[in-house]
Design a protein around this nucleic acid. Sequence first.
DNA 1: CCGTATCCCGGAAGATACTG
DNA 2: CAGTATCTTCCGGGATACGG
Lengths: 149, 149
Amino acid sequence: MKQSNLNETVVDNQLVIDKKKMENIFSDFDLDNPPAVCPIRDVLAKVLDKWSILIVLMLGYYEILRFADLKKKIKGISPKMLSISLKHLEKDGFIIRTAFAEVPLRVEYKLTAQGESFCNKILELSEWISIYFPTIVDGRNKIDAGTKD
Amino acid sequence: MKQSNLNETVVDNQLVIDKKKMENIFSDFDLDNPPAVCPIRDVLAKVLDKWSILIVLMLGYYEILRFADLKKKIKGISPKMLSISLKHLEKDGFIIRTAFAEVPLRVEYKLTAQGESFCNKILELSEWISIYFPTIVDGRNKIDAGTKD
DNA sequence: CCGTATCCCGGAAGATACTG
DNA sequence: CAGTATCTTCCGGGATACGG
């Protein structure tokens, strides 16, 4: 972890954005003229998908779940969407699919190490939201009080 | 921070999911029978939106941007979507909108403290992705090599 | 310049029936 | 049980023109 002094730019409060970090992450393209597509955003978009997040969280909690388990635990998901999401997650290395040659067929899903790591990231985000949630709701109400939608 | 021993279940590597944290965050509902809607997911979904993320990142980097600036810097966004996203972000307390009574009209957007904090969270996520990205791409190729689509 | 209103289309995703 | 195939619906969101 290089700690060079590239960041001597004022840090008068701890909330300042780490622009150096930003430039490192997005070093591939010019921030003033960013490309329409970016691999990081691509991965982000797929994995921040509504269903994918839930699947990851569920597997994070229960460790091993079968197709039917997931379908039951994730309210409202159709077999189609569950199947597609699982394929994406597997393809990108977040989960492992294990099929057992039994009758009736049995298939188990679990997180990979990468998946667990990501799950913890999601948890951090959720934690962040839960901390700010009162403020957010409060602000919404203030605005609602003033304007009509 | 309750550290009850509900989690005596093995911790043989540091990537294990913090289920206690999970239960705290989602304490509102039964994980075995989660509701279809959840306030945290609601906020998450809105703010993890493709355009919202980009707006937050841009404002994190440039600090102050006008409507036209954002439209120019965020490739492909329509005025409609930009407007909607900005409204959401403002309503949820991530950005501040300041209008100056000039002609021609001038409006500036900047992050709130909450917005900056969130921006850093997004940066962490991006950093995570950029770290795992090679692994992800590698895995994809392996799978592609075996199966067609 | 800062947006809103309108029209319109493609693709995301639900429901369901079916197969290995 | 674990998915796939199909059909259809719906609405997110792009393009554009206009109003304040």
